[in-house]
């Protein structure tokens, strides 16, 4: 199988530099990193990809079984690392992808040598003694929102959105195409994301880790950032003066600065 095509992998930047894998979270695709990439390309080999079921990954590779758990997404990560023979890469994961990185680092230790967790949350739903910020009903509400917003998706547009080798220019013009996903696949990713509980996996992290949180984040509130920081031995926590769940878009300078400082301090 061609993993590069399956996950729409793009490798850019310094071919001799350390590999930095940028992994998007639930919602959109690798375009989310467009303001991060310029800060990294000079020194690092930057690896961008889309999870199967998102962006321009090959929709025919989607399997509801595989992607019903974060392990399925983590396998995507490991397979991308293997296909491009990445060793000791720094994995930068946004939101749920931060946890995917934890799982991938656990199964392929030689591939992933450090983690940057951008607005991570190991569990979104409240539990005894833990506040994730959401109830199960809230997640149902999100699924309803997904359903009523096809965001430019229709059966007719799907092949265009999903990448058309013959006419790539078609896709570029589409409004909202970064977040256009087959609703059935988006629903699976949403359920997997928001019903996941990876709190126990945090303790297993053995690599240098940077946790980035925002001052005002509805999805990953500060107490969740503190939880992640405390659970990962030796991790660093940086609180970005940013609002929302996507500091790499809303506060790119501060986010880039935190990431490059962490990268510079590795070894």
């Amino acid at each position: 199988m061609d993993i590069g095509r399956r996950n729409n992998v793009n490798v850019i930047g310094n071919p001799r530099g350390r590999a930095v894998v940028l992994a998007h979270g639930f919602g959109c695709d690798q375009n989310m990193w467009r303001l991060t990439v310029p800060a990294l390309v000079e020194e690092y080999k930057v690896v961008l990809f889309d999870y199967v079921g998102s962006g321009r990954a090959d929709p025919s590779a989607f399997s509801e079984d595989r992607y019903a758990s974060l392990d399925g997404y983590a396998r995507d990560v490991v397979e991308v690392c293997e296909a491009f023979d990445l060793r000791d890469a720094v994995f930068v994961g946004h939101s749920v992808s931060a946890m995917t990185g934890v799982l991938a680092a656990g199964t392929a230790a030689e591939r992933i040598g450090a983690l940057v967790m951008v607005a991570p949350s190991p569990r979104y739903i409240d539990d005894d003694g833990y506040r994730g910020g959401f109830s199960a009903e809230d997640i149902d509400e999100l699924l309803a929102s997904l359903e009523s917003n096809y965001l430019g998706w229709s059966a007719a547009m799907a092949p265009v959105i999903m990448g058309n080798a013959e006419r790539p220019e078609l896709g570029e013009e589409l409004t909202n195409s970064f977040c256009a996903t087959d609703p059935d696949m988006a629903r699976v990713f949403a359920r997997t994301t928001f019903l996941s509980d990876s709190r126990d996996d945090l303790k297993t992290v053995r690599v240098p880790t940077l946790v980035l949180e925002c001052t005002q984040d509805v999805i990953a509130p500060r107490e969740v950032g503190a939880f992640v920081h405390q659970a990962i031995p030796g991790s660093a926590l940086v609180t970005l003066d940013a609002t929302g769940h996507c500091p790499h878009l809303s506060a790119p300078e501060a986010t880039n600065q935190a990431i490059t400082a962490f990268l510079a301090g590795l070894r």
Partner: peptide, 18 residues
């Protein structure tokens, strides 16, 4: 709350990018 989640995961990033 569901709308908030949708806003943060789709609406806000798209607004920033587009």
């Amino acid at each position: 709350v569901g709308g908030k989640l949708y806003h943060e995961t789709h609406f806000a990033p798209l607004l920033r990018m587009q």
